[in-house]
Amino acid sequence: MPQPFAELTAVAAVLLRENIDTDAIIPSREIRAVAKTGLADGLFANWRYLPGRGRTPDPEFVLNKPACQGSRILITGENLGCGSSREQAVWALAEYGFRVLIAPSFNTIFHRNCVRNGLLPTRLDSEAIARLAAWVIEDPQRHRPLVSLANQRIVAGGDSWPFEIAAEAREALLEGLGELEQTLKLAGRIAAFQAADQLRRPWAYEVGSPNGDDLND
């Protein structure tokens, strides 16, 4: 179950690119195990390491800069998390240490994956992001934004911006609720719905097969 999130003041990394896709966040070849962990090392691998040089860090990449060590907030351009639905992208970000993502917009599946894993995706408009990023870049270790989910605000230097987040996502993040456990409590209602539905749409339930039932063969 995800950890509850209330408020965080932390070092932010600025990566103002648009359309950062999930393959950039965690390249497919970095997903080696059937597991939700062991992914942080592959985070942004194509950008973070020098091409053809194994794991030699590219000093130009933001996460490799000494000033950005310990980043827990990531600030990006729009359409963050587009592309493949792989949840490993979110697991990798979380394992690396990120708790908050700030972007003008997010891919829908990616956004849902973030919330489900206790990672707070916050939307700010591009202008606010430009200001925020400029302030952070001046001195990342000292200029740490405060992100409050309880107040739905980001405070940075002299600025303070409200951010949008859907009520359900906010609630889930604040309480660290596991959706599955919640839904399992509704098992009776789900069963009753299906019993009635099966009379209306039997074809949705009778899943035939060519030679009788071949389950488990």
Binding site: N113, L180, I190
Partner: peptide, 14 residues
């Protein structure tokens, strides 16, 4: 399309 955590929810609860 859904994520993996959603897939778990889907599988366990339909």
């Amino acid at each position: 399309g859904i994520g993996s955590t959603e897939a778990e929810h889907a599988l366990a609860t339909q």
